[in-house]
Write a protein that binds this DNA or RNA. Structure first.
Lengths: 105, 105
DNA sequence: GAATTATTTCGATAAAACCGGAAATATCGA
DNA sequence: TCGATATTTCCGGTTTTATCGAAATAATTC
């Protein structure tokens, strides 16, 4: 995953309102939540919710599916998994040869 | 972990410059990197680096230790681990009873 | 204590984020 | 088509962020 893309996803999660929204969707699991359900849970203005929801969708963290009048939102678990993998990828790769003190040799 | 704290950490990682910086430290592993090493790797102004480094430190993602004239920076792996755990915590908790269709019952 | 190296703070500026109210769009039911 | 429900877009104002250069601080060495 590109650093730019990973950063945009982390940025999307890096707002308390959006993080709460995302976690509500994570808790909801497969079934997801309608936009209205999200709104009543978070208790913020609809326009504000729509704004943040869109940010999560653009980032690829959330998907939407229309069901009649309502839009069902779901967390995209694969994207989250990829993001987590990215964060820990290459951990300690440059830490060669088991030096126990910094800048040894 | 509090949502506010988690969001602040994700926000800290949600900037391409800071994410690159953090990943450089993750790659460096236990030995860490001096601020000067970070600067030469990222190729940005020192003031800019200092600004972003401070953000990571305030967020708790990075620690610093003085060694003579240099400040050694290290990724705080425990904090990262906690953050990852937070993201996947309570997954599907509200998805009761294995309904396969949304809003069944 | 003066010179040197390492790092941060300050000042300025342009860009972006955040928020809610009002209006617009889309779907359903009768 | 008309009315009701569900959701988004547009608008504006305020706050925050990102960036760099220049000056200041901190620790070391001679």
């Amino acid at each position: 995953m590109d650093t730019i893309i990973a950063a945009s996803r982390l940025e999307a999660l890096g707002n308390p309102t959006r993080l709460s929204l995302y976690r509500a969707l994570v808790r909801a699991g497969h079934g997801g939540l309608s936009v209205g359900d999200c709104q009543s849970r978070l208790g913020i203005a609809q326009s504000t919710l729509s704004f943040h929801l869109k940010a999560l969708i653009v980032a690829g963290l959330v998907t939407q599916e229309r069901q009649g009048r309502t839009l069902v939102c779901r967390a995209n678990f694969e994207v989250m998994s990829g993001l987590v993998d990215f964060l820990v990828a290459e951990c300690c790769r440059d830490e060669c040869c088991g030096t126990s003190e910094a800048s040894a040799a």
